[in-house]
Design a protein around this nucleic acid. Structure first.
Length: 861
RNA sequence: GCGAAAGUGGCGGAAUUGGCAGACGCACCAGACUUAGGAUCUGGCGGGUAAAACCGUGGGGGUUCGAGUCCCCCCUUUCGCACCA
């Protein structure tokens, strides 16, 4: 075996070993720019196994922030790792480029939104490139370009065709001062964000909706299949969809003389999840905005005023975002309804805790068994009747059980009383039987309600996808014919604070002939919610330049579903529900075959500094450009992975970036100092030949252990902080043999092998320096496509194990034994140990526990 | 109020299944090399002690030969939900 001795003479000058990220990164940056296909995925007929890794596309706000850097560093490390594992990796990037900030910038700086947006994209793209993220830029998508939003419009037509897009009146925020509609985010404490004194009004406008509720059941049920998603996100989606099983029951309104002529089907339909308690219903409660209220109170001005007050209270609470905080209030209408189960007359009230937009806006009130109803009934002294007992079927009655049964009725095992023919049934059984009874008698049925609402997609805004619809005086609503797409968003619009959408002030956009009758028609001037753009953009990446179709199905079928999606938890609900909806719709019109878009989802933590999220307001923003300029892209990225596990919040500490920079310097210096050894040593040898010196064996063992640790983390729980720590440990180990190498006593094969493999381990985290070192080691190929190093479990195995010896659970001594020693031998050695002997002196040994590979515990009495 | 996650040195964080608490990094201290550097290398670094003993993973109980890890109660922080009938 060759020794390092003869090779040391060629050691380069110390001066050359200074790690200069600027010089290295600029060199490779230039080289990578020259090869636009460097990170290209292979076509879908590739024989390789595919891997689609995706980070959430950014809004082009102007510059990257550290949250982006962290997000993309995670994705990039994974993409590079999968490349090295031999996968055909799709790793694209694009821009969520429509939205409000561009319009605000236009007003402020007098720059057209398109120009502002494209300039920002240009800049942020250059930042990403400089950071060395391995994106396939040939697949770049910007949602504000007609070649993309054309397909938003096409999808919209498809939704319309299938009856999934429809128009409905709906309330929007309106600032009288601006004379325009505000997005929810622009309403601050009920006032306009620009006119802090001006109350925002609610206006009814005709808006476009997408019927997401049509898919509510599937969206809900399939959450359980999303096993690669964080539980937190799954729970949030379940809550958001808010599925609830119950029943609808009709209460007839008791007629009064003045209404002798009234329709006989005059009724109030209530929604309840607890039909089993219906014999305990002692009133019916309506939401203040319930359509029946007006008829019930007739012309009574006093009642009207009281109801209006309730509406006001609800409105205020809703604005303050604390609908649960208001005190319960109500008004008796003076009218009664008839409980269809027992024909009992119960009073009809209007109450401020009943919400019109959930269920039917009407409930039966069961004060004995519902906390809210209880509170209300207490206040107005309404009757309470116990109908459920916390007693099992067949159990004998207990004394005073009815009084004790007030309220805590939620136990699974409980039974009915005071409920006519349903007495003595368990409440679960009663729910079934009573629902069926109601259905058979035609006054009710089982039903499921959802809190999920249809998606309002209209925005009275300029910078978005024009909704491809026309209004013709003769033909009504007319969709723009497919072959006339895209409806181009005019670029010369004047954006001001005045009036509604700028599009409505552009006659050349507004006025078009009706495609049906040829008469005068008017275009829809609303644009689409930008969540439409992000609902399907990841499909477009698979074939981004397709001119005649939104996507190519075979290509999509190869790549989908996305194997790994990475982004912030703030998108857990809207973006990810809309995306799931869109996928199901696409599947149902035959475009794709997957039911869900994303197999595995990862939500990374926030970037924090000085105890708060980085934000301009707090003045604690750290600029990625600044970090790159001072420490280099490699250090910046690696720190983002090293400072915390990726799912936790990350505390940005500049000294930590410096520490990583120091580490990269260390590995750089070491590898460069002995690079010539690797260049002049056969790579294939792998350092495995002949008996090795203890230090060479130690290096070899640690190397294989390190590869195992890093690989396991990529395959498993993604704790990149410990991956990096493992590599650091190994580099520390390398420094411990520095003198030995310099003295010429270290086997060159082992050294060369260690250098090559440690550089490969570094590649996903610090691609620039890895490329530089790889080249210095004399490797001609690109490190990106080089196979990930494998570890040999035999070489990773310890030869000796040092057992800690505990006495009564406290560490007292240690013994070293060969790794494969039988338990008996370990026990003997432990008992023979001097310190153990001394401690055991005169005491009785109760027990000795040997945990193979771990420790020995001796229990003395 | 309900639900989830978390709480470990001066700081960021390790300890994957109950088995040596504090890996790795930062900060700090000491030394080496020094035509001096915010460079590099070596060593130290939870508290405590002369050294030990001993005490230490938010607090209090428990299970166990052995608990940061499991069980019970409580406190704090963060996030989600919050009149959803």
């Amino acid at each position: 075996m060759s020794r390092t001795q003869s090779l040391i003479a060629n050691q380069p000058e110390q001066r050359e070993l200074r790690y200069d990220p600027k010089q290295i990164e600029e060199k490779w940056f230039a080289q990578w720019q020259a090869d636009p296909a460097l990170y290209a995925a292979e076509p879908h007929d590739s024989a390789r196994k595919k891997f689609y890794v995706l980070e959430m596309l950014p809004y082009p706000s102007g510059a990257l922030h550290m949250g982006h850097v962290r997000n993309y560093s995670i994705g990039d490390a994974l993409a590079r790792y999968m490349w090295m594992q031999g996968y055909n990796v799709l790793h694209p990037m694009g821009w969520d480029a429509f939205g409000l900030p561009a319009e605000n910038a236009a007003i402020k700086n007098r720059v057209p939104p398109r120009q502002w947006t494209l300039k920002n994209i240009e800049h942020m793209k250059s930042q990403m490139k400089r950071l060395g993220f391995a994106y396939d830029w040939n697949r770049e998508v910007a949602t504000c370009l007609p070649e993309y939003y054309k397909w938003n419009q096409w999808f919209f037509l498809k939704l319309y065709e299938k009856g999934l897009a429809y128009r409905k009146k709906s309330k929007v925020n309106w600032c009288p001062e601006c004379a325009t509609v505000l997005a929810n985010e622009q309403v601050v404490d009920g006032c306009c964000w620009r006119h802090e004194e001006t109350k925002v009004e609610l206006r009814e406008l005709e808006q476009w909706f997408v019927a997401t509720t049509r898919y509510a059941e599937e969206l809900y049920q399939e959450i359980q299949k999303l096993e690669g998603w964080p539980d937190k996100v799954r729970t949030m989606q379940r809550n958001w969809i808010g599925r609830s099983e119950g029943a609808l029951v009709d209460f007839k309104i008791d007629k009064i003389e003045a209404e002798a002529e009234a329709k006989t089907d005059d009724k109030i339909t209530v929604f309840t999840t607890r039909i089993d308690t219906i014999f305990g219903a002692t009133s019916v409660q309506l939401a203040p905005e319930h359509p029946q209220v007006a008829r019930l109170i007739g012309g009574d001005a006093e009642l009207r005023a009281k109801v209006d007050e309730l509406i006001g209270e609800q409105g205020k609470a809703r604005e303050a975002g604390d609908i649960g905080g208001i005190e319960k209030h109500g008004v008796f209408t003076g009218r009664f309804a008839i409980n269809p189960f027992n024909q009992e007359k119960v009073p009809i009230w209007v109450a401020n805790y009943i919400l019109m937009d959930y269920g039917t806006g009407a409930i039966m009130s069961v004060p004995a068994h519902d906390e809210r109803d209880y509170e209300f009934a207490k206040k107005y002294d309404l009757e309470m009747r116990v109908v459920i007992l916390p007693r099992r079927v067949g159990e004998p009655p207990a004394e005073g059980e009815e009084e004790h049964a007030l309220l805590p009725y939620t136990e699974k095992e409980s039974l009915l009383i005071n409920s006519g023919e349903f007495n003595e049934l368990s409440n679960q059984e009663a729910i079934e039987k009573m629902s069926r009874y109601a259905e058979e008698h035609g006054f009710g049925k089982k039903t499921i309600t959802y809190r999920l609402k249809d998606w309002g997609v209209s925005r009275q805004r300029y910078w978005g996808t024009p909704i491809p619809m026309l209004y013709c005086a003769a033909c009504g609503v007319v969709p723009v014919p497919e072959d006339q797409l895209p409806v181009i968003l005019p670029e010369n619009a004047e954006i001001t604070l005045q009036g509604s959408s700028p599009l409505s002030r552009m006659p050349e956009f507004l006025n078009v002939p009706c495609p049906k009758c040829g008469g005068q028609a008017r275009r829809e001037t609303d644009t689409m919610d930008t969540f439409v753009d992000s609902s399907w953009y990841f499909y477009r990446y698979t074939n981004p330049h397709l001119a005649d179709r939104a996507l190519d199905t075979p290509t999509v079928n190869y790549w989908f579903p996305i194997d790994q999606y990475i982004g912030g938890v703030e998108h857990a609900i809207l973006h990810l529900i809309y995306s799931r909806f869109w996928t199901k719709f696409m599947r149902d019109i035959g475009l794709v075959r997957n039911d869900e878009p994303v197999t595995r989802l990862f939500t990374q933590g926030m970037v924090i500094k000085d105890g708060a999220k980085m934000s301009k307001n707090k003045g604690n923003v750290v600029s990625p450009d600044d970090m790159v300029a001072r420490f280099g892209a490699d250090s910046t990225r690696m720190y983002a992975l090293f400072a915390a596990p990726p799912d936790r919040d990350l505390d940005w500490q500049e000294a930590g970036v410096e520490g990583v920079h120091r580490f990269i310097s260390r590995i750089y210096r070491f590898v460069m100092r002995y690079a010539h050894v690797a260049r002049e040593t056969n790579a294939a040898a792998g350092g495995a030949s002949a008996p090795l010196s203890p230090s060479a064996r130690a290096i070899q063992r640690k190397l294989h252990q390190t590869i195992r640790r890093v690989t396991d983390d990529f395959q498993g729980r993604w704790h990149f902080n410990t991956c990096v720590a493992a590599i650091m440990e190994f580099v520390n180990e390398l420094y411990s043999i520095d003198e030995e190498i310099a003295a010429g006593n270290f086997p060159a094969e082992v050294l060369a092998d260690a250098q090559r493999r440690v550089v490969l381990l570094l590649a996903p985290f610090a691609p620039y320096v890895a490329a530089e070192l790889w080249q210095a080691l004399g490797e001609p190929d690109s490190i990106l496509r080089h196979p990930w190093p494998e570890y040999d479990p035999a070489l990773a195995k310890e030869d000796e194990i040092e057992y800690p010896i505990q006495i009564n659970g406290k560490l007292r001594s240690r013994v070293s034994v060969p790794a494969d020693s039988p338990e008996e031998f370990v026990r003997e050695r432990a008992l023979a140990d001097e310190k153990v002997q001394a401690a055991a002196n005169g005491k009785q040994m109760a027990k000795i526990i040997v945990v193979p590979g771990k420790l020995v515990n001796i229990v003395l009495k």
